[in-house]
Design a binder for these strands. Sequence first.
DNA 1: CATTAGTTTTAGAATCATTCCAAAAACATG
DNA 2: CATGTTTTTGGAATGATTCTAAAACTAATG
Lengths: 143, 143
Amino acid sequence: MANPRPYSGLIERLKAVGLRPTRQRLALAKLLFGPGNRHVSAEQLHGEAVGAQVRVSLATVYNTLHQFTAVGLLREVVVEPGRSYFDTNTSHHHHFFCEEDRNLVDIPGEELKVEKLPRPPPGTTVTEVDIVIRVRKNPGLEG
Amino acid sequence: MANPRPYSGLIERLKAVGLRPTRQRLALAKLLFGPGNRHVSAEQLHGEAVGAQVRVSLATVYNTLHQFTAVGLLREVVVEPGRSYFDTNTSHHHHFFCEEDRNLVDIPGEELKVEKLPRPPPGTTVTEVDIVIRVRKNPGLEG
DNA sequence: CATTAGTTTTAGAATCATTCCAAAAACATG
DNA sequence: CATGTTTTTGGAATGATTCTAAAACTAATG
């Protein structure tokens, strides 16, 4: 029983947020919103698209990632200078990040709670709380 | 009573961490480690140095910031894609960040605590926990 | 189906922060 | 002051991202 509708839901999903379901947006959405959550960079996603025979320019990948982020389909994650990651998991959660292999791992919201948030600076309102737990690979145990 | 020793302590401080107290390192240290904590970008610090009649190249500012960070005199803060900030406060603490005006504000360690850290992914060890509380300026009250 | 208006995509140039490089300058030591 | 090492430097190189103006596409209309 292969899925008879390769874009099932995606067209609706795009329309619902006011984005035309163009060929490239659909293809990118399909790559992004498959099973499981993902953390991708623009360059990475572009590579996947090209690999999957989808003709799409890097500029469009950037545009699309930002549009998806703007409408809440994606969440941008900043953990390294110079590169942005986009997370398909838009629920409240945090991240482990390993600088050595640039690996991002979700931390389910419940596993980490903040005790009493401090009051934000006068004249401002909190929009988001981002927690990044940086990790290092343990010294190899080989041998 | 103007301070009779404009570089008091700084020379020692640099020597203590194994860095030669060169003219440019001293000048940058003086700008960085004056009273109060600071959050600066490389471009910014370079601008200040030039403004203060200190002849130093941007490349040296980058080198110096990284060297200072490596020896623990500074802490690098990543909150925006594309730009790095360096924090003169190296103690454990977190940040408020306003994207609108790119303003970073320290949150003293005590004012924010994390309840039960989740276990890091297998084979890794936690090196740091970075919390960024993003804020937005409240709608203006003028009028 | 042709026209038109608005949207999207695109290649390539431009930008921006940062890093790299190889040569020049500054230093430390003998 | 001769020598070997460390720093600094300007400018080129890099890498991610954004911009731009033109081409391709879409939707709506008559």
